[in-house]
Computed example of a mutant assay.
Amino acid sequence: MKFAAIAAAGAVFAAANVAHAANPILPKLFTADPSAYVEDGTVYLYVGVDGASTTDKDYVMKEWRLYSSCDMKNWTDRGSPIKPSAFKWAIGKVDAWAADITKRNGKYYFYATVDHATIPGRAIGVAVSDKPEGPFVDARGSALVTNNMTLEAPIAWDDIDPGVFVDDDGQAYLYWGNTVLKYAKLKPNMTEFDGPIHTVGMDRFTEAPYLHKHKGTYYLSYSRDYPETTAYMTSASPTGPWQFRGVIMEKNAKVKTIHQAIIDFNGKSYIFYHNDKLPTGGEFRRSVAVEEFQYNADGTIPFIKQTKEGPTANPSSACK
């Protein structure tokens, strides 16, 4: 599973900036592309920071930022664990696009979308740290995925949105893509592929693949169509075959993207996403939010409405 981090409970409240928030949960910054994981009663939430002004016509994303919570209501700003400049082979200025994180053999691996400096197009790098708050350093010195490695789509941004998953047997997988869904097994070192890159044939896939497991079933959620809704498929295997299950979150009013992450925390299930609900929010000024949900009796995920209230407090033992 992608649930990993080790931190003393007192450290959750050590940082100065604590957001006591309903949705959006991080009201001081425009944030997007949430990635979340859990361990020892703490949620670690990584987001990209939207730095665009109200007149900018493109994303301005200079860093990823980390927040933590022990109750799903109060979020502590833990600073920036990594910036695109950590990848020296990347352009490294304003391209902190979607990322994901997991833990393996006592180290934290951060898979990130950046713009390659010499191979045209988006690329995926992997950084490593001994602590969830970083600092993270480039684990390879080169990209794990470059645009010339996947030729199924004639666009420069088809290698984005990495989602990393470690199964119960220890096998790790990386899913990613735009317009074409791709995946590959990872070696135990987490920095190399163990075999070929595979594609998954499916209609209306856009981006943001995210794999999680619940009661023995694999759930592959993703952004569908454009403007995007959140949909999902299920399987008895992390590599399919997949059964389409439906849309679980409707598209945003102003923002064309939505980008989900799904976790279990302290006996409850949650979905993170982004929308446009902060004042002056919009396409390039997004806001991370979260909702609680319950799986249906048959294991399917219900349709989840976006709310202003967000989830109720769910304090874990780490809060004490």
Rank of each mutant, 00 (worst) to 15 (best):
L278G: 02
T217S: 06
E283V: 01
D159M: 12
T118C: 07
P135Q: 13
I304W: 02
I258H: 01
F265S: 04
K73M: 15
K83R: 15
H198A: 08
E309W: 09
V288N: 00
P227G: 03
S221W: 04
D276T: 06
A289M: 02
L174E: 02
V145R: 09
T312V: 06
P238L: 15
V247I: 15
R78F: 11
T76W: 04
C70W: 05
I263D: 00
G267T: 11
F193L: 15
A22V: 12
G177Y: 02
L144H: 04
K107Q: 13
P81Q: 07
D158E: 13
K213P: 05
F284T: 01
D95L: 05
F3T: 01
Y232Q: 03
T300D: 04
A313I: 09
A139V: 07
A16H: 05
L211P: 00
T42N: 11
G282S: 01
T55I: 05
Y111T: 11
M61T: 10
P132Y: 01
L26A: 05
T76C: 09
K93C: 05
I301V: 06
I248N: 00
A7H: 00
R224Y: 08
I124P: 00
F30W: 12
K103W: 05
C319N: 04
L151Y: 08
T150N: 15
T42C: 10
S317G: 03
I160L: 13
G282A: 03
T300Y: 03
G195D: 12
V166M: 04
A14H: 01
G170P: 14
P238Y: 14
T102W: 03
A297D: 09
S223D: 14
S35A: 15
A112C: 13
D130I: 12
P154L: 09
Y226K: 06
I301W: 01
K268L: 13
T54V: 04
D33A: 13
I91H: 02
A236M: 07
A153S: 14
K93T: 13
A19M: 12
R78M: 11
T102G: 07
